[in-house]
């Protein structure tokens, strides 16, 4: 069956949806931005001993909590009706929420961080005359975005899977998943040692790139795990989220 892309995606409608989302959601964005601007600014002053980098990560954590309410509106009958009756495709409505909470929030965090850290450094250097402490912004933006995407995808799907308390429920699932993985890995290692396969393991550590191998015959196991966690898992979760969103009905 041919897909009518023009009917599903239009830049004009996406911009329109973005404006609607901003008209509805600018307050929480502004509040989070302001709070972290002040905190990062203060931490950038050399008289304080907080790390601005830590605050950047804290802001991303706030973003994850923000993601949990990405679909709170469609859980209410009246607001759900309002959202679903807007003449835009399901794909556009889904994508605007995805981009707004992922790219939008991340860009806001970076902007707030650089502005606040820059302002803090300026005040430290010119007004307080204090130099010498390292207050540079983080350089691992791509890595932090990848990690943010992983958690975003998880809590984005959680926001659609669970009707109530989805942040806590998703956190529980995350912790449970972590323990299952840990248990499985432990079990695998134990059985490998018991069967004498441990000699085939390559516990190879590279000074530049860290751990490179674990399982027999593979020198890049950790790269594979990283790809799995940072690409395959988020993509699968976004796919699941889209299907859930597409099939959502208003509250009966």
């Amino acid at each position: 069956m041919a897909i009518n892309l023009k009917a599903r995606f239009s830049v004009r409608r996406m911009v329109g949806l973005g404006r609607l989302a901003l008209a509805d959601e600018w307050r929480p964005f502004l509040w989070i931005g302001m709070i972290f601007f002040v905190l990062t600014f203060l931490s950038s002053l050399t008289v304080f001993r907080f790390s601005p980098d830590f605050l950047f990560k804290l802001m991303l954590l706030a973003g994850i909590m923000f993601v949990s309410r990405a679909f709170a509106d469609i859980r209410q009958k009246e607001r759900g009706t309002y959202v679903f009756m807007i003449p835009a495709s399901v794909e556009e409505k889904f994508l605007i929420r995805l981009l707004g909470t992922l790219v939008g929030f991340y860009l806001l965090s970076v902007l707030v961080f650089y502005l606040a850290a820059g302002a803090g450094n300026f005040v430290s250097y010119y007004l307080l005359d204090q130099v010498g402490l390292d207050r540079q912004p983080p350089t691992d933006l791509l890595d932090s975005f990848a990690v943010f995407t992983f958690f975003h995808a998880l809590f984005f799907a959680g926001a659609l899977l669970f009707r109530k308390n989805n942040f806590f429920k998703t956190t529980l699932v995350l912790i449970a998943g972590f323990f299952v993985l840990l248990f499985s890995a432990g079990h695998y290692l134990k059985s490998s040692f018991m069967h004498g396969r441990h000699q085939q393991f390559q516990f190879y550590f590279d000074m530049e790139d860290g751990w490179q191998g674990l399982f027999p015959g593979s020198s890049s196991t950790f790269t594979l795990i990283k790809w799995f966690l940072l690409v395959i898992v988020p993509l699968s979760l976004y796919g699941l989220s889209y299907l859930l969103f597409k099939n959502t009905q208003i509250k009966k």
Binding site: A7, A23, M85, A88, S89
Partner: peptide, 27 residues
């Protein structure tokens, strides 16, 4: 069921209870 945007563009629903954003009529 597909909530096609072409259908929604040609359909307007006034429900009994509704939500409207806190903006002016002109906005």
């Amino acid at each position: 069921r597909k909530r096609d945007q072409r259908m929604l563009q040609d359909l307007f629903f006034i429900p009994e209870s509704f939500y409207l954003p806190p903006i002016s009529i002109e906005r």
